[in-house]
Nucleic acid binder design. Structure first.
Lengths: 224, 224
DNA sequence: ACCTGAACACCGTTCAAGT
DNA sequence: ACCTGAACACCGTTCAAGT
């Protein structure tokens, strides 16, 4: 289903890498509103070359975020072999949050392109895949309540990251603190009252991709 | 300390109100990136008039957000008289989240102007004031763990709102669901392991306002 | 005092001309 | 094929001219 990696000319490939590195460095230092001109200059190429490699500034950001997500996926796969399933899950979340703190507001505008950019979507589905496995293991071990899904967890963590970036001058470890609270929420037995709504699934996300289509007969055979 | 409300000419006051209403409507419908020209047009004034009333587009957004915060403060004060302190606190959070869901991504760019805009800051301090009272009452009643502060709670809720706006097409009630998880986190006894870091205070926020000042002797008599 | 809209500065993006 | 930078379109903001 995924297209083959179009092989680039040697210099083009090098320019692409330089652009990614320059953008990553500048975004990390000064946030997402650094100009494309400055990025191209730091990469040592013309502005047009940036748009030859990336359809828009948002796509450039998406490419960087997708790379991060691939790293996260790889790390999550490693943790699947850990002894303690609970520690594996929460250690995974800790590392994700740790990376976020370092490089400023990279998650900042992800929300906007979350669903519209295919590269981000597939990378995020990878992350959700491992997260789901880590979660199921932790639930089987009794370390995490059974009524939450991987998408629940990812959204809570994303929220913690975003809220923390606004206050990072305040306390660098505040995200860790709030992650501990998320952990408490996930560790608690679903005793008191049940959660409102139901755990969102990947199918829900796919369905959310086409809101302008008012076909009205979508609930036919999709109620599995 | 707060300056007196400069009394405006009748037509100027009316224009200001019209601009706020037009902006609120358009932002709610199509997000924060509607142009100032369209806002002015909908309000029936020239573009220059917008900038006479609000120093910048960000200040216009801040004025709207500040109004919302005043409403939230008023609602919180009412809830201080409620019978069940726990229900009062979580009901308050529910209403905040409910309003957020309705009008799109209003919290979206708040993070950026959080600390730089004085109007937002004082309005937020008001909210934090009531939230603190609601929280202390709930803690005294044993409904909420003692090791969290009002700023912790506000940041968690803000995170939930932001993460939910990205997925609002998915499930309108997803923020409510995650708020239930936050409730579980706050209701849990601080038994397992203690939270990392310490509860952020209003003094921490004020201190975060002046990061470029490296005076180094700020911990003199401020350690109260 | 306040309002207006043309003019300005500053982005992201495109494209004709080069190699 | 790929690169370049001038040119374009589109923002937010300013300001001289009006009332």
């Amino acid at each position: 289903m995924a297209g083959e990696e179009k092989t680039l000319r040697a210099d083009a490939e090098r320019n692409r890498r330089r652009l990614l590195e320059a953008a990553e460095a500048l975004f990390g230092e000064r946030g997402l509103d650094v100009g494309v001109g400055e990025i191209a200059q730091r990469a040592g190429v013309g502005r047009g070359t940036l748009f030859r490699n990336f359809a828009s500034k948002e796509h450039l950001i998406a490419a960087i975020v997708a790379e991060r997500m691939h790293h996260a996926t790889a790390r999550g796969l490693e943790l699947l072999d850990a002894d303690d399933p609970g520690e594996a899950l929460f250690g995974f979340l800790d590392e994700i949050v740790g990376r976020q703190q370092m490089d400023r507001a990279l998650f900042e505008s992800v929300g906007d392109i979350y669903l519209s950019n295919e590269e981000i979507r597939s990378a995020q589905n990878e992350v959700l895949g491992v997260l789901d496995q880590l979660l199921v293991r932790a639930q089987a071990a009794g370390a995490v309540r059974g009524d939450v899904g991987a998408l629940d967890v990812l959204m809570l963590v994303k929220g913690v990251c975003q809220a923390a970036t606004a206050f990072q001058h305040l306390d660098a470890d505040i995200a860790k603190r709030h992650l501990d609270l998320i952990r408490a929420a996930l560790s608690a037995p679903p005793s008191a009252q049940p959660l409102r709504g139901r755990a969102p699934t990947l199918e829900d996300m796919d369905r959310a991709l086409t809101p302008p289509a008012a076909h009205a007969d979508a609930a036919e055979h999709a109620s599995a």
